[in-house]
Nucleic acid binder design. Structure first.
Length: 554
RNA sequence: UGCCCGAUAGUAUAAUGGUAGUACAUCAGACUCUGACUCUGAGUGUCUAGGUUCGAAUCCUGGUCGGGUAACCA
């Protein structure tokens, strides 16, 4: 019974449409990807908007593949898109459609438009048609065949369909207005000849409908009420409406509403550029964890919840802006902080020998699995004479603000003991090879009975039970916050050479021995990591999803 | 240079003629067995010039700046 609270201008318009009693007060949206690439975070915004809006109003959302160009589209992409939409947590139920489902209807309706004298065949080549379209300041000129008879057009259109013409020989155009200030209304193409097999219809067709002709009609036949798309289609709207006007046979009418696409700092979002990154090997594949693709984010360790929350937080407007990637990172930190199993991993091990600890003794200490969620319980972590800490947690000559381990200083090993550094051992070159420390047996569990405090708590891994692992540290794919924004420089010039750092010899506690791919962890004090699909029982591989927030001011 | 769209803190958004809020980011402090989390606090904003109005971020006009648009792509 709660009143519906619109979250953005599109939902406000839907409220108004509903109040006006339009379309029997139905709300039906669709997500219409072209299967010519993998989905990215920008699509996630659209998916969340379309499915989320329908849900808000008790309506439905279709998944429809916009597959009108067989030259670019492949089944591989269809499969990945369905997987990604599902992973995000949305369900199109039985409403899976393809624009190619409507090829027959589209053909029949084109015939109808020809009969009405509103479409004609043009035999001119591409350059000529383009030239005749005029310029924004000069009206176009009519094609010589603009006024040919419906009978003539019908005959030729049938021949086109039969394959009697070569690719490019002729096209079908809508007869609208060659003088329109909107270039899209200057007799746009409806059909072109493409002698290419289609991923679903095979060799059945050699003529294929153009987007503008297919999209609105598909919406109409599916009963879509609100056709939500991005800003670049705004100038197409009069054309969308023109075709709907010709089709409409009742009060029902779909409505196109545009919003601004998502841009994020330090990455690129165009499918063309993402394809280029993959094809030219700048990243390993579409699911490379540095990619803004949905599969890339998934492999990186992002959760569906975090992506959905991000889509919610960025908002929906017509302002063409750039969202700070920090917001995305905030969303995954917030989600994983509540849910991720804590574990200790040392990525740059510095050996410590506890000189007063019995040689062969292995103790176990209790560690909390997630301080944010008591129900996740505790685990045992082995502790022994030789342990490793992060090399950067020790400083031989500490600065003022450095309050971790240093000669003579005492720190806590998390969940274990206080230790004090007594000796620094170096090799001939002067590199620190190990530290000799003593532990205080009285501080087992991490607290001193005498109440004394230490300023720092370090993560650690004991040599006993330690597992070797590989850690892949990711950074921004581009060094410039706006790699697309420079007209003189190609976006590839801003590729970050350090976007991937593979650290091969890390040590991790035995708890993760049988970790399953994609499981999220927090490595205490380091960040959130997940198990990469490359991981094996012999060689564990982790991806750094995102570091912990770092307020460390040196 | 035609047509279309847009302009609110650093960024993204809210306020739909009546107190300019929120989130992220930044900075400061508290707390802390993660320099995390959490909590508290701070600073920074209505593109511009007119007009309408008792009152304008909001309505109108001009300007400025930004984006889209002239594919047999979607």
């Amino acid at each position: 019974m709660d009143p519906i609270v619109p979250k953005n201008f599109i939902q406000q318009q839907i409220v108004e449409d509903l109040a006006a009693g339009k379309n029997d007060k139905r709300v039906h949206t669709r997500f219409p990807p072209e299967p010519n690439g993998y989905l990215h975070i920008g699509h996630a915004k659209s998916i969340c908007l379309n499915f989320g809006t329908a849900k808000l109003f008790g309506g439905k959302t279709n998944l429809r593949f916009d597959d009108t160009n067989p030259a670019k589209e492949e089944t591989e992409y269809v499969d990945s898109i369905m997987e990604d939409v599902k992973w995000l947590g949305f369900d199109w139920e039985e409403r899976l459609y393809y624009a190619s489902d409507y090829f027959d209807q589209l053909y029949d309706f084109a015939v109808e438009l020809i009969k009405r004298g509103k479409a004609y065949i043009d035999f001119q080549n591409q350059e000529l048609i383009s030239e005749q379209r005029g310029t924004p300041t000069r009206p176009g000129t009519d094609s010589p065949t603009r006024n040919s008879s419906p009978e003539e057009n019908l005959r030729i259109f049938a021949d086109m369909k039969e394959g009697k013409y070569n690719e490019g020989a002729c096209v079908l155009r809508a007869k609208i207005d060659m003088a329109s200030p909107n270039m899209h209304m200057r007799d746009p193409l409806m059909y072109r000849i493409l002698k290419q097999p289609h991923h679903r219809t095979g060799d059945k067709w050699c003529i294929y409908p153009m987007y503008d002709y297919a999209h609105g009609q598909s919406d109409y036949w599916e009963g879509i009420t609100h056709s939500i798309c991005t800003l670049e289609f705004e100038v197409h709207r009069p054309l969308y409406d023109w075709f709907v006007d010709e089709l409409q046979d009742s009060d029902y009418r779909p409505r196109q509403i545009e919003f601004s696409r998502l841009n994020i700092t330090s990455t690129v979002m165009s499918k063309r550029k993402l394809l280029q990154l993959v094809k030219e090997g700048y990243v390993k594949d579409w699911d490379d964890p540095r990619m803004p693709t949905i599969c890339g984010l998934r492999r990186r360790g992002y959760t569906p919840e975090s992506v959905r929350n991000f889509a919610e937080l960025v908002g929906i407007t017509k302002v063409d802006g750039v969202t700070d990637v920090a917001l995305l990172e905030f969303c995954i930190r917030e989600d994983l902080n509540k849910r991720a199993q804590r574990v200790m991993c040392v990525t740059d091990p510095l050996k410590i020998i506890l000189t007063n600890f019995p040689d062969d003794k292995v103790e176990e200490v209790d560690a909390i699995n997630n301080p944010e969620d008591e129900s996740m319980g505790k685990r045992k972590v082995p502790f022994s004479k030789v342990i490793y800490i992060e090399r950067e947690d020790f400083m031989e000559e500490p600065t003022n603000k450095f309050y971790r381990l240093a000669p003579g200083k005492e720190v806590r090993l998390r969940y274990a003991y206080f230790i004090r550094c007594n000796d620094v051992i170096k090799d001939a070159a002067g590199n620190i090879t190990e530290l000799h420390c003593t532990y205080d047996p009285e501080t087992k569990g991490g607290n001193a009975p005498d109440g004394r405090k230490v300023k720092a708590t370090l993560h650690w891994v004991a040599s006993s039970g330690a597992l070797a692992c590989e850690v892949r540290q990711y950074d921004r794919l581009f060094t410039d916050p706006d790699p697309d924004g420079n007209k003189e420089k190609d976006f590839l010039e801003f590729l970050n050479p350090d976007s991937l750092k593979v650290i091969g010899d890390c040590l991790i506690e035995p708890f993760v021995a049988n970790a399953i791919p994609l499981t999220n962890y927090q490595f205490e004090r380091l960040g959130y990591f997940n198990v990469d699909p490359d991981s094996t029982t012999e060689k564990l591989v982790f991806n750094r999803t995102v570091s912990l927030k770092d307020n460390n001011k040196k």
